[in-house]
Amino acid sequence: MGPLWLGMLPFAVAYAVTARASGLSVWETQMMSLTVFAGASQFAAAGLFAGYGAAGGASALGIVATTFLLNARHLLYGLSLSRQVALSHPQRLIAAQFLTDESYGMVTVRGTQEPGGPSFGYVLGAELSLYTVWNASTLLGAVGGAVLPSPEALGVGVIFPLAFLGLLVPMLRGRMTMLVALLSGLGAWGLSRLLPGGLVILLAGIGGALLGAWLTSKKTAVREAGA
């Protein structure tokens, strides 16, 4: 688990610094980590909040819709986890709050080595340890960031794309994924000259994922026709 905690720490600190630079209070920054608890979507929202309420900036609907889209993948983790671990109804209500990419990966990769497979206790233990580290690091960044000079002077704006690039690069396996990433990115850049921030991410995100799904189904159809 150690490497997972160490990986979370700088990301949570960077999220908190970005959120504070966008005008969120320490409490609002922390509240998002306590409730939403989903790194990429929190970071995205932190960036979008920078233009919140201003002309041409992201709207509340844009931020919420982007969050929904980014976190829809948790449906897949839930589907997969529920086939590996038998959970009662109250246990599902609790486990759902703390489910993340990291805890899903942890349970899937390591949990199967447990005698009798992963239990609810194992799942919750993995989830809560990550939750604790994420929230402690958020507090560190939110409070620590307040004593630092202005965001422009520090150049922290560049941390936002850098952190996302760090998440994207390991996902780029195969030509199809690279094509989807390239077209979504360039599409978003083109759209950003015409539309507000939140909507751009939503349109480019849905468009890119539809393209990927369409390319995948076409490839499968060709393979089946050839067999």
Binding site: A44, L69, V180, S184, G187, G207, G208, A209, G212
Partner: peptide, 10 residues
């Protein structure tokens, strides 16, 4: 594909 397309768009 959603994480790839959304993150690239960000």
């Amino acid at each position: 594909f959603v994480p790839v397309s959304v993150i690239a768009a960000l």
